[in-house]
Write a protein that binds this DNA or RNA. Structure first.
Lengths: 399, 399
DNA sequence: TGATTTTGTTGTGTTGGCAAACATATAAGG
DNA sequence: CCTTATATGTTTGCCAACACAACAAAATCA
C-alpha cells in the first residue's frame, strides 16, 4: 500500500547520520513504549543485525538513557540475552492546570510516575498563578530532582487550544485563559524547556502508547470531563495536529441543528449536548468522581436517568458517526464520563453507531473504554517532554 | 515540534540500503512533483552533497526514469547545471468509471496526459462492463503503449468506498457496485498491476501535488459532482486513509438534524443537502457542465437561485465548520459545482465559516477553488499507479 | 582577456551496518 | 555428569553510501 506512506516524505535527503539517529531513536522508542526487552527481541523487532543492536544499545547506555541488566530466566535454549530497559532516572516533568487545581508530576522514561503533587486552588487559576504554583512545587522538589540523572523538560497538558509552534494557549474556555504565552512564561520561571499541548490530544497519544490503543494506528479518543468533551485523533500512528496544533476538536462538531449556542459561537456542538453536569443532575450526584458515576449508573433504575443516558448516547453516536466516516478508525476510546456512559449501555452505543456509519467503515471498528486512569495526563504530558529525546537520543542527551 | 513527527515511526531499523532508496525516491519525487530541476537545485533542496546528487541522478538515468538535458540559459554566474526531468516515456494508465462513461488515460511521469479516451455508455456500467471497456481501449492502444519505455500499471479512481488492501470496491452507490473485486478483475483482464482508490481522495492528493494545494501539508478537498459530494483529506502531507482506506467521507457527516435519510442510512448528510441537481433545477439547466453552471450563476438574478445558493452554502459551511475544527487545515479546496457555489459568493461562504469555527482554527485558513480541471482524475489516478515506483525507484524499475 | 563564481568530476576518507567466525551460556538427552 | 544442540554475545574485516577536498569546466563580469 504505497499510496498511504509516500508523499508525506520530506524533500530532504538522508545520510549516515540520519541512519544512526533513526536507529537509536527506534531502539530507545521500543524500550520506552513497549517496556524492557532483551537484545535479541530488539534484533527481531528492528530487523537489524545483532552486532548493530549491540552497538546501539552500547551507545544508549553511555548516554545514560538505558540500562542493561542480567538476563531473566527464560527457560529457553541458547545464550541468554541481556535485558535493556529505559533508565528510570531520566525524567520529565508533567503539568496539568485544571479548574480547581494544578497538578505537577515527575515521570520516568520507563513510564513510572515517581511523584505527583496536586495543588488544589480555591478558584480557577490564572495562567500566572499556575506558573507560580508549578515553580513553587518544583522548588519544593529541588532536592528530589537533583537525584535524577537528567530532567529533560516540562510537558504541559492544557484543556484548550494550544498553538503548537510556541506553546501559546490560544483559548482555554474553562480556565478563562485567552492568548496566554504559557510555555515561555513557565520556561522563564523554571529554566526548563517547556512544551504545551491540548490535554485530549496528549491523552489520545498516551492511550495509544500505553493504554487501550496499543498497536492501533488509527484511533479516535474522546474524553468527557467537568470542563466538557475533549478529543484527540491518531492517524497513521501519529497524532493529528493540523497546521497549527488545533486539530481534533470533535467536541465542536455539529450533533444537533436544533441545539443551543456553544461558547465557541456555533450551534449544537457535541460539547453542549453531551455533558457531565446533566448526567450528574439526573443521577443526583454532587462529586465528579468517575467511580461514583459508574456505581450510580449501574445502580440506578430511574427512568429519568435512563432517558438522559439515552439522550446523551444518541448525540454521542452522531459525533461518532461523523468521526468514523471521516477517520475510518479501528478504535474509538472513550474516557472520563463518556466511558461511564458507554459502560452503562455498550451494546446500545454500538448499535447506534453501527446503524448510522457507512457499513464498510464500521466493520473494522471497536469501541472501548479508556484504560489509563488518573495517571493518564501525567504520562501523556511527560511523553510530550520526552518526544525530542526519543526522536534524537544522541543530540538531545549530549546537548 | 517533535510531537508531530515522531511516534508514527515504525519499529524497523534503517540501513544503508534504506538511505539509498530514500534518496533515490526523494530525487525522483522532486522532479516528478515540482517539475524539471537543475542538479544544483536538487542539491539545495535535498541538502545532499553535489557528488551524491550526481550519483543518484546517474542511477535514475540508467534506470530510465529521468533524462538529463542541456542547461537552460540562466543568465547567472557560474557553470551551468544540467536539467533533470522525469522521463515522459514512463507512463501510468489511469481509469475512471462514471455513471455515463469509462475514461482511460495514459499519463507520463512528467505529468503530461498523453492520451485520453472517454468511452460513453448508454447506461451505468457494471464492474464487468467497465473492465471489458478498459481492456478493449487498452487493446486499441497496444501499438501506442509499446512505444513507451515502461508502463508501470493502472490506477483507478472510483466514486465510492474502496478497500485499500486489495482494491475491492465495497460500495459505489451511484454506480450501484457492491463488493466488486475490481482491482483483481482488471488485473486479470489486462495483465497490469492495478491499484484502486476513492476518486475524491485521489483528487485531494492531486490538487495538493499539482493544483491549488501546492506546499500545503494539511488540506481538505471537497468535490461536488453529479454523483454527490466526495471528499479527501491531506494531513501532515499525506493522504488520510484510515485503517482500511475508507477515510475522508465528509459527504456523510451531519449538517442537518432535520434532514432526510441518505442512501447511507443516516440522517442529514451533507450529500443529501448540498447537491448539483437542486442547483441545476433552480438554474433551469440540463447539462452538468461546470462552465455552464458558472455562467448561469453569474448571470442569474433570480431570488430563487439566490435562495438555493444561500441554502447550499449554509449547509456546506456546517460541514466545513466540522472539518476545520477537526482537521485545522490551512486550505480548503472546492471542486466541481462546489467550486461554482463558492465562486458565486466567496465572501458569504468565508463569513459563514469564520463565524462558526473555533477562532484559532480559522486563522490560518484559506478557501480556494480547485485548479485542476478535466485532467484532474487522470493525473490523480496515475499518481496512484506511480506511487510504488516513486517510493522505491530502483527495485520497481528493475523488477 | 583575466578574475570571479558556480558547479560538475574525481579520488580519498569516514562511518554505519552486515556477515562470518568465534566464544559463551543455556537447555535437552543420554 | 557429560555431550550436543541452540541461541546469542563478541570480534574482525568488508562494503556501500555519502561527505569532503582538490581540480576542472563553463558561465558572467570588469
Amino acid at each position: 500500500m504505497p499510496y498511504r506512506s509516500d508523499s508525506g516524505q520530506s524533500a530532504r535527503g538522508n545520510n549516515l547520520d540520519t541512519v544512526r539517529k533513526h536507529n537509536l531513536s527506534v531502539v530507545l522508542g521500543l524500550v520506552h513504549r513497549r517496556g524492557p526487552a532483551s537484545r535479541s527481541r530488539l534484533t527481531e523487532a528492528t530487523g537489524l543485525n545483532r552486532s548493530t543492536i549491540a552497538a546501539l544499545v552500547g551507545e544508549l547506555v553511555e548516554l545514560g538513557l538505558v540500562v542493561e541488566s542480567e538476563p531473566s530466566a527464560s527457560n529457553r535454549v541458547g545464550r541468554p540475552s541481556p535485558v535493556v530497559a529505559p533508565d528510570a532516572s531520566v525524567v520529565a516533568l508533567a503539568v496539568n492546570p485544571e479548574i480547581d487545581a494544578v497538578t505537577v508530576g515527575v515521570v520516568g522514561l520507563d513510564g513510572t510516575v515517581h511523584h505527583r503533587v496536586r495543588e488544589a486552588t480555591d478558584r480557577v487559576p490564572t495562567a500566572a498563578e499556575a506558573v507560580a504554583i508549578v515553580a513553587t512545587v518544583l522548588d519544593g522538589l529541588r532536592a528530589d530532582l537533583a537525584s535524577y540523572s537528567r530532567v529533560v523538560g516540562i510537558g504541559v497538558a492544557v484543556p484548550g487550544l494550544v498553538r503548537e509552534e510556541d506553546g501559546m494557549v490560544r483559548l482555554a474556555p474553562h480556565l478563562a485563559w485567552v492568548d496566554e504565552p504559557f510555555a515561555s512564561e513557565l520556561a522563564d520561571a523554571t529554566g526548563f524547556p517547556v512544551l504545551v499541548a491540548n490535554d485530549a490530544s496528549l491523552g489520545a497519544n498516551a492511550e495509544r502508547l500505553f493504554g487501550a490503543g496499543t498497536h492501533a494506528s488509527d484511533l479516535v479518543y474522546l474524553n468527557g470531563g467537568a470542563s466538557g468533551v475533549g478529543a484527540g485523533v491518531i492517524a497513521r500512528g501519529a497524532p493529528l495536529t493540523g497546521i497549527a496544533g488545533y486539530a481534533g476538536e470533535l467536541g465542536h462538531t455539529l450533533v444537533n441543528s436544533a441545539g443551543v449556542r456553544c461558547h465557541c459561537g456555533a450551534i449544537g456542538c457535541l460539547d453542549t449536548e453531551v455533558n457531565q453536569g446533566a448526567l450528574m443532575r439526573a443521577l443526583g450526584l454532587e462529586s465528579a468522581d468517575i467511580d461514583e458515576i459508574d456505581r450510580a449508573l449501574a445502580a440506578s433504575e430511574s427512568p429519568k436517568v435512563a432517558a438522559e443516558v439515552e439522550r446523551q448516547l444518541g448525540f454521542l453516536s452522531v459525533a461518532l458517526r461523523n468521526a468514523v466516516n471521516v477517520f475510518n478508525p479501528q478504535l474509538i476510546v472513550l474516557g472520563g464520563f463518556l466511558g461511564s456512559l458507554f459502560e452503562a449501555a455498550p451494546a446500545r452505543l454500538e448499535q447506534l453507531v453501527t446503524e448510522s456509519v457507512l457499513t464498510a467503515a464500521g466493520e473494522s471498528l471497536r469501541i472501548v473504554r479508556a484504560e489509563l486512569g488518573s495517571s493518564l495526563l501525567m504520562v501523556a504530558a511527560a511523553e510530550l517532554a520526552f518526544a525530542s529525546l526519543l526522536a534524537d537520543p544522541a543530540t538531545i542527551a549530549e546537548g
